[in-house]
């Protein structure tokens, strides 16, 4: 039963790896972003008088954020296309779940990106700083959670993609998502700079798990913190899966009434 999804995963995984030009492009983009944000954070650190942020681990923290941010494939665009051009309906008669197929192929792409960009980004951080932030086991656990977080981001993009049943173009919605992701996730500036109420708002969303809170494990790792992030991650995943299922069912209902 799972063989079909595994095959889809590997097909997408190896196809992404074969597309070397795209991976080189993403790597260059990632390194550029890394340098920009590294300098931005250094300036902010001086402005707010937290020179402590200016340490070598800062680059690792930003690298960890960028790693996820750049690796997650734009699955919402594919879903939007399939819904809008009707391809989606023609996939329904096959004995495979559309959502499962979407997730599997997205996951294949995501994992290929995470592996390649992980080597690039963390290799670059090590080369620039000369330090390795964690011992092997915690680092392995940190990477593991990175892959899970990528899957959560992918699920969120599926949710955005499915909204095309109603709003047609999902680009504006994605744009809002992206802005919230960067600001409430703690990439643009540290979450600690925000007023308390905004920090509370940010912590009530999934964005810190996707970026800041997870990346902070690199700076101050403990198994307890790792477990906390994992539990929150699990809760968000379950919640988004539920929303996806509901939205998908409503989308199918809409097709029944308005045609495919």
């Amino acid at each position: 039963m799972l063989a079909k999804y595994t095959r889809l995963f590997f097909l997408s995984f190896f196809q992404t790896l074969k597309n070397r030009n795209a991976l080189v492009g993403l790597s260059v983009f990632l390194i550029t972003c890394l340098l920009i944000f590294d300098n931005l954070w250094k300036v902010i650190a001086i402005r707010i008088g937290q020179e402590g942020l200016n340490g070598s681990l800062l680059l690792w923290y930003i690298a960890s954020n960028e790693w996820i941010l750049v690796s997650v494939p734009q699955l919402h665009e594919e879903i939007e296309d399939e819904v809008k051009n009707g391809q989606f309906t023609y996939m329904l008669p096959r004995p495979i779940s559309y959502l499962g197929a979407c997730f599997s192929r997205g996951l294949g792409k995501l994992f290929a990106n995470l592996i390649v960009l992980g080597i690039v980004t963390f290799g670059f951080a090590y080369w620039k700083t000369g330090v390795f932030p964690l011992h092997p086991l915690p680092f392995f656990l940190f990477l593991l959670i990175g892959f899970a977080v990528g899957a959560l981001a992918l699920l969120a993009l599926i949710l955005i993609g499915l909204s095309s049943f109603w709003i047609g173009q999902v680009a504006p919605l994605y744009s809002v998502w992206e802005k919230l992701y960067l600001t409430l996730g703690g990439l643009m500036i540290p979450l600690t700079i925000y007023p308390d109420w905004l920090q509370n708002v940010a912590n009530a969303t999934l964005f810190p798990i996707l970026l800041g809170e997870r990346s902070a494990l690199l700076l101050d790792f403990s198994y307890h913190k790792w477990l906390c992030v994992s539990v929150k991650l699990g809760i968000w995943m379950a919640g988004i899966c539920l929303l996806i299922t509901m939205l998908y069912a409503l989308g199918l209902k809409k097709i029944q009434h308005e045609g495919g």
Binding site: A3, K4, R7, L8, L11, Q87, M91, R94, P95
Partner: peptide, 22 residues
Amino acid sequence: RTQLWYHLPPIETFDLLQKIYE
């Protein structure tokens, strides 16, 4: 419409369909 993967040779899609249709 197409059920073939655009960037892959047809044989790859056929192998995938083998799994899909078990």
